[in-house]
Deep mutational scan, measured.
Amino acid sequence: MDVFMKGLSKAKEGVVAAAEKTKQGVAEAAGKTKEGVLYVGSKTKEGVVHGVATVAEKTKEQVTNVGGAVVTGVTAVAQKTVEGAGSIAAATGFVKKDQLGKNEEGAPQEGILEDMPVDPDNEAYEMPSEEGYQDYEPEA
């Protein structure tokens, strides 16, 4: 019985440690998101679009440190934060509304985080759909 109880105690310690790591990862992701939003706020009209992409990228980098179902929630929060940063930029006159959601080359930025393969159960990952990809044929 002692062996059984000791095993359960060790398992509990492992769960607590994993929860603490997840909590730490979420806190880091939130900190990076805040950094990115402050970065966007300090940019001029020309830099705002690039700044919004930076927020998304920093958040995406930190999301990889967070495991399990938390990833889905962090990704949703990050996307809403990026959308909010863009709205703030438009409201303050840093950028025109028609410039939001495009990178410096004018290509749409939507789907940055949505296409990231995420499995809350950590069982399997699927690649994003290939609808947006084109076949590449090298020139002879």
Rank of each mutant, 00 (worst) to 15 (best):
D2K: 03
D2Q: 11
D2C: 09
V3R: 15
F4Q: 00
M5C: 00
G7I: 05
G7L: 05
L8K: 00
S9I: 13
K10M: 03
K10H: 06
A11K: 00
K12D: 00
K12I: 14
V15D: 00
V15G: 04
V16A: 09
V16I: 14
A17W: 14
A17R: 14
A17F: 10
A19W: 11
A19V: 15
E20N: 10
E20I: 15
E20H: 15
K23E: 00
K23A: 04
Q24Y: 10
Q24D: 06
G25K: 13
V26D: 00
A27C: 03
A27L: 12
A27M: 09
A29E: 00
A30L: 14
G31F: 11
G31T: 12
K32P: 01
K32C: 15
T33N: 03
K34F: 12
K34A: 09
K34M: 14
G36Q: 04
V37Q: 00
V37D: 00
Y39R: 00
Y39E: 03
Y39H: 06
V40R: 02
G41M: 08
G41C: 04
G41W: 03
K43C: 10
K43V: 15
K45F: 14
K45H: 07
K45S: 12
E46M: 09
G47Q: 00
G47T: 08
V48H: 01
V49K: 09
H50Q: 02
H50G: 05
H50L: 12
G51A: 06
V52Q: 01
V52T: 00
A53M: 14
T54N: 15
V55Q: 00
V55P: 01
V55M: 13
A56M: 06
E57Y: 02
E57H: 05
K58E: 04
K58R: 01
K58Q: 06
K58G: 01
T59F: 15
T59W: 15
E61T: 06
Q62Y: 02
V63Y: 08
T64L: 11
T64H: 07
T64F: 03
N65K: 12
V66G: 02
G67W: 09
G67D: 02
G67E: 02
G68K: 10
G68E: 04
A69C: 03
A69M: 13
A69W: 11
V70T: 03
V71H: 04
T72N: 15
T72Q: 02
G73F: 15
G73L: 14
V74Y: 04
V74D: 02
V74W: 11
V74P: 04
A76P: 03
A76I: 05
V77P: 03
V77A: 09
A78D: 00
A78K: 09
K80H: 09
K80S: 01
T81Q: 05
E83R: 11
E83K: 07
A85D: 07
A85Q: 05
G86M: 02
G86V: 02
G86S: 13
S87N: 01
I88P: 02
A89I: 13
A89P: 06
A90I: 04
A91M: 14
A91Y: 13
A91V: 05
T92Q: 11
F94K: 00
V95S: 06
V95C: 10
V95P: 09
K96P: 14
Q99A: 11
Q99E: 15
Q99F: 11
K102V: 07
N103Y: 06
N103K: 02
E104C: 00
E105A: 05
G106T: 11
A107Y: 14
P108C: 11
Q109V: 15
Q109Y: 11
Q109I: 07
Q109W: 14
G111Q: 00
G111V: 15
G111E: 11
I112M: 13
I112V: 12
L113M: 13
L113N: 08
E114R: 11
D115A: 09
D115W: 14
D115K: 10
D115M: 12
M116T: 06
M116D: 14
P117C: 11
P117W: 03
P117M: 08
V118H: 12
D119R: 12
N122R: 13
E123R: 07
Y125G: 11
Y125W: 09
E126N: 05
E126T: 08
P128M: 03
S129L: 15
E130P: 10
E130C: 06
E131H: 14
E131W: 13
E131R: 02
E131S: 14
G132D: 14
Q134H: 02
D135E: 06
E137K: 03
E137F: 04
P138T: 06
P138D: 09
P138Y: 10
P138W: 12
E139L: 13
E139N: 07
E139D: 07
A140F: 07
A140K: 15
